[in-house]
Design a protein around this nucleic acid. Structure first.
Length: 749
DNA sequence: AGCACGCCGACT
DNA sequence: GTCGGCGTGCTC
């Protein structure tokens, strides 16, 4: 009897209820089965909380058929459902599609949608304060009420702040009334104020499509009309809005945004992360009367949660965001705009490896709504899609408002040499900067290299400082007196003596970074106000915005900057742009080196001379005959695309073929070697598909792991994912080795 | 991704 | 003799 009783106690209570397929946001490729407790009703798309291992996690009921064979021992019950509109079927289909395409686990892709901790719980109200009713009456009735004059000056200020009836947090009141929050507490004790709940609302609930239209030029009007008609017609349609910086592309696509909003659709505006500038937000506010919902890495936890829920409930109508915004749970998405479509920042290189621009096209196709790509320098992929008639090509040729494109000039560094090997600015460029400053205009020097010098070597023994964990030189940073690795965060003090030969004072800085250019500029312009803009001198989004505003307000005369300065900012007084090393991006023989350099330099050039001032751009180069330099100075853009396209076709490269990178990574160099060689031996080879490598991957040693890569080149008619799948299944890999698949890799050497 | 389970070195 | 290192593998 006793033993029988024990057995009954030990047996787990049988899980009851209908089964549901549930996808969890973890790297698993199939939906799990969970029991749905009696009385609960759940359909695909519903958000749930489920137990997984020893934790409770958010998840989504999926469309896959339930696996009835799951052992009853494993089976667990769904803990709760959530009161949110279900994740729409288009979004679920999208997640499945992206997982298949990128060869990532479905759960990993879902994780990009369920990325906000606590988003499924209704938001908790914050404590706010309002004036008590009798105080409010006093404020309304009389200017100099007896009650109010009896209060202390700080308390009177608090009353003034709260007199509009709007509830505020204690900290906000303290800030606005210039007192401590203790005052609020005292007033609460005297019942002058009372507590109330503050529910922060979702952003961008009521954009007003008629708030502030600007007058469009004829060309803008025609382009806008086309985009608007796509929205009106509905259905999938991809287009490229192609026009130079300052042509007024933003105003054009705002019209399409307005139309989609009028039709009751949500709109997603994708930007490269860096371009979320104040200037852009101001333009949005001017057009729609409110700020858009923002989505980027710098958001606070609270803002993230509000925005995520706003998107899911449909309260938030417009999202302006970086690539991860594509995976927000839109209730009724009806238009996507991808600004700066060519930008490499759209490619995510970790976790799920995807290109947000390409995935956005897929999202629009699944949702059957229009999508517009925007660029002054489209990617060759997009241009060729236009040539093939898959995308509509909308040209916006002229600069808006009478501004002219800057004049581009090459400075042949073989002739107009800097004064010595320690200097990097040609006298020609320095003179042009002097002239600009003399006219009370600004000058910008662009160099896409942080720090002081990219290489430090010993003049005595030739020792080079390399990162002990990566295949990369250590970059000297003067400010911190250190040598930094830009790939893994390793750094060391600059030593007095060479570690190779112990010689002192033998170390020499080779080549320039922005810090070194700063030094040189100070020699030439001791009285100028100079600012250096690089990702490591800025602490975050807000500082970047403030500095950009300061530049716009002409608080600086000379700007020295990397990438961060290149994009989407408009500086009205900037008329002289110098590119310190125009050849920089061309070195290394990357597939897209020429295209990238062209795009980047074109973009930098676009910073100069808008409105009424003529801009001048000077490209310092040792390769004045290179096709990129010729295309830039002759404004022969279409010629450049044709040459580039021919070269890609000849070498069987994208967009004429498809590529996939297979990265074999691990800490055991020998094992990485062995596995990659083995993969190479049984790699797909044939008339329509072949494999290159294995070879050392870019940054062979990265953070102490070794990486080798194979590159598959396949005809577009080949099912690439399937070929890779069956190939990788043939080679057994130990768990110490990780294999990453990068479909459509962007860059490689 | 976490987290538990499991097999070999330096401590009470 | 135990505490704990992180390698390996699973999560309905």
């Amino acid at each position: 009897m006793q033993t029988l009783f024990d057995d009954m106690e030990d047996a787990p209570a049988p899980i009851q209820g209908e089964l549901r397929s549930v996808l969890v946001p973890y790297p698993v490729d199939k939906a799990y089965s969970y029991a749905m407790p009696d009385g609960m009703e759940l359909a695909p798309g519903d958000y749930v909380t489920v137990p997984l291992a020893s934790r409770e996690i958010p998840a989504v009921v999926w469309d896959d058929p339930v696996d009835e064979n799951v052992s009853p021992k494993k089976l667990k019950s769904i803990i709760t459902g959530h009161d949110l509109p279900p994740l729409p079927p288009e979004h679920r289909k999208f997640i499945d599609w992206v997982a298949h395409y990128t060869m990532a686990a479905k759960g990993s892709v879902l994780k990009m949608t369920l990325s906000v901790p606590g988003a499924l719980e209704p938001p908790k109200p914050a404590t706010g304060y309002i004036l008590s009713p009798f105080v409010m009456e006093e404020v309304a009735v009389e200017e100099n009420s007896k009650l109010l004059t009896k209060l202390s000056p700080v308390q009177q200020r608090v009353v003034a702040v709260l007199s509009d009836g709007q509830a505020r947090r204690a900290a906000e009141i303290a800030e606005e009334a210039d007192c401590s929050s203790g005052v609020v507490k005292t007033m609460l004790g005297k019942q002058l104020v009372q507590k109330t709940d503050i529910f922060s609302s979702a952003p961008c609930r009521n954009p007003n499509t008629e708030h502030g239209g600007v007058e469009l030029s004829q060309a803008q009007y025609d382009a806008a009309k086309t985009l608007v008609s796509h929205v009106e017609q509905g259905g999938f349609c991809a287009s490229l809005l192609d026009g130079v910086t300052g042509a007024g592309k933003t105003e054009v696509y705002f019209e399409a945004v307005a139309k989609a909003l009028e039709q009751g659709k949500q709109v997603l505006l994708l930007l490269p992360e860096i371009a979320l500038s104040n200037a852009f937000l101001d333009r949005f506010k001017k057009r729609f009367g409110c700020a858009p919902g923002l989505w980027h890495s710098g958001l606070s936890a609270g803002a993230r949660k509000r925005t995520w829920r706003g998107v899911a409930t449909g309260e938030t109508r417009v999202i302006v965001g970086a690539r991860s915004a594509l995976f927000l749970p839109y209730k009724e998405l009806g238009l996507i705009v991808v600004d700066e479509e060519h930008d490499p920042a759209y490619k995510q290189e970790d976790n799920v490896i995807y290109n947000a621009r390409d995935m956005a096209i897929v999202r629009a196709h699944i949702g059957q709504f229009p999508i517009t790509l925007i660029s002054a320098t489209p990617s060759l992929e997009t241009i060729s899609n236009c040539w093939a008639g898959r995308y509509e090509h909308i040209n916006l040729p002229h600069r808006h408002g009478g501004a002219t494109m800057p004049e581009m000039e090459l400075i042949d560094m073989r002739i107009d040499k800097p004064e010595d090997k320690q200097h990097f600015l040609s006298p020609v460029l320095v003179e042009q900067m002097e002239r600009a400053l003399g006219r009370h205009e600004q000058a910008l020097l662009f160099l896409n290299r942080r720090g002081y010098a990219p290489l430090t070597l010993c003049r005595t023994c030739g020792h080079r400082f390399e990162c002990p964990r990566c295949t990369a030189w250590l970059v000297e940073h003067k400010k911190s007196q250190r040598l930094h690795c830009h790939h893994c965060g390793f750094y060391m003090r600059v030593p007095k003596e060479c570690p190779g030969c112990n010689d002192s004072d033998s170390l020499a800085a080779c080549g320039p970074g922005v810090e070194r250019i700063h030094e040189e500029v100070k020699e030439h312009f001791p009285d100028a106000r100079i600012i250096v803009m690089a990702s490591d001198t800025l602490t975050g989004h807000d500082e970047l915005r403030e500095k950009l505003q300061a530049i716009r307000d002409h608080e600086y005369d000379i700007i020295i900057g990397t990438q961060v300065i290149a994009k989407g900012h408009h500086f009205p007084d900037l008329t002289c742009v110098g590119v310190v090393d125009a050849d920089l991006g061309l070195k290394g023989g990357d597939l897209r080196a020429a295209e990238r350099t062209f795009q980047l330099l074109h973009q930098v050039a676009g910073r100069a001379g808008r409105e009424d001032k003529q801009g001048h751009v000077f490209l310092q180069t040792y390769l004045p005959d290179n096709k990129v330099m010729q295309a830039l100075t002759g404004h022969e853009r279409d010629m450049f695309y044709e040459i580039e396209s021919d070269e890609r076709e000849e070498s069987f490269m994208p967009p004429y073929s498809r590529l996939a990178g297979i990265i074999v990574a691990g800490k055991d160099e020998q094992m990485v070697m062995e596995i990659s060689r083995e993969l190479g031996k049984c790699a797909p080879q044939g008339p329509d598909i072949h494999t290159l490598g294995p070879a050392e991957a870019p940054f062979y040693r990265l953070r102490g792991t070794y990486r080798r890569r194979l590159l598959i080149q396949a005809d577009k008619k080949i099912d690439l994912q399937k070929a890779i799948d069956s190939w990788l299944a043939n080679v057994k890999t130990p768990s110490t080795i990780r294999i990453y698949v990068d479909i459509d890799p962007q860059s490689f050497l």
